[in-house]
Design a protein around this nucleic acid. Structure first.
Lengths: 210, 210
DNA sequence: TTACTTATGTCACAGTGCGCCATAACCTCT
DNA sequence: AGAGGTTATGGCGCACTGTGACATAAGTAA
């Protein structure tokens, strides 16, 4: 499964060859700061590369798309989720695993909260970013779908695991969306409540709305 | 509420002025056919306008974006949903209204089925199309959220109506996504099953999974 | 030094989307 | 018919994104 990040990362092993002038992280950092001051659409690649001191061509060697700089962190979160799902005890009900694992995978230390909030605002409002979003979301959802299918002992393209994956994804997105309009709310709490509201449970237990 | 379609429709009232050489519908028709034969990304605006016999500049007077031609039908579906929700009897439980109204709003006569399938394939797979998608999806979801909030007698930015709107949207999308990989399945049936699985109900009744 | 490797820069190009201005085609009123 | 207003179109230039081809800089190992 080629996780298909939009990054074209330069080779990591530095045994020979010209040393890199910059890095994906550095470019993403510079870019995100410009996005916050000028807005995503108003920031050009020329702005970013000028600030970073490299040529435009170099930018596109690190990222396939301008929007891709916003998704640097995503693969790490994706990997955390996958690891948490793999490590979950088999006897734990699948919905409880998800209530626990998804907020945990998205957890960031307090000092990154404003960064995470800014990122969420950019991810959910800039149209060009949405184009890349679908592919990332698909991986997130697929992890949950596979997990649910395994727990339900059904093929992953059955409707129920599909629904569980879709619910997990939309809970994640809705929580962030709600969060950016209510920034004082606690994201993990929002996440857990939405997961409880949205994830279907096969045992006929009540949905968590009250 | 300016429904903000990506169309820049020429004035409809034709009292005076040069008659239009083309129309949004005609351009969308030509474009969609090219998309199906060559693919979305591989079809250029020049291809479309050449086939339609107008200049490129004219295309961008009808649509703000290449991807917008795929969303012509959307505002009609959106309007149908809104009308159905407005007309629903107040005593009917909100989730049952949604089970009924959403498949109805998306209903197309049998002769349009292949067209609808092709459109769904394009909408859900071409990255550039996703950029426009978020705005359309937001309207769809907002209709449901407002409806749910009214039925639940709560402000529309409460978490429960928000979750209902999110569930309705993701059920719609997931049904289409499932449909394009299982084209022989019946879309309205898929829709209804997913709505039953995903829409949270406040009364503690079992979720519909079995 | 020589060879190899890797990152960068420059150039040219296709494609999207927009602003501006001229022009074509239709209307109504005189 | 002619004048004036209205609307759609066409053409031109431009900024920006993203790519391919090719040359070059700056390291490492022999």
């Amino acid at each position: 499964m080629a996780t298909s990040t939009g990054m074209r990362g330069r080779t990591s092993g530095n045994l020979g060859g010209r040393p890199a002038l910059t890095s994906a992280h550095r470019l993403a950092e510079v870019a995100q700061e410009l996005f916050l001051t000028k807005g995503f659409a108003e920031t050009t690649i020329a702005d970013i590369t000028a600030a970073a001191g490299v040529s435009q061509r170099t930018f596109f060697r690190y990222f396939t798309t301008k929007a891709d700089v916003l998704w640097v962190e995503t693969s790490a979160e994706q990997a955390r989720l996958q690891a948490l799902l793999d490590a979950a005890p088999p006897e734990e009900p699948y919905h409880e695993v998800l209530y626990r694992a998804i907020p945990a995978a998205l957890h960031h230390p307090p000092e990154e909260h404003t960064w995470a909030l800014h990122r969420a605002q950019l991810l959910l409002t800039a149209p060009a970013v949405q184009a890349q979003a679908a592919a990332r979301y698909a991986e997130w959802r697929a992890s949950v779908t596979r997990f649910a299918a395994a727990r339900l002992d059904s093929p992953p393209d059955d409707l129920l695991p599909t629904a569980v994956g879709a619910a997990a994804l939309t809970a994640t997105l809705t929580a962030h969306e709600y969060w950016i309009t209510h920034p004082t709310d606690d994201l993990p709490t929002l996440l857990e409540r939405l997961l409880q509201l949205l994830i279907p449970r096969p045992d006929g237990s009540p949905s968590g709305a009250t």
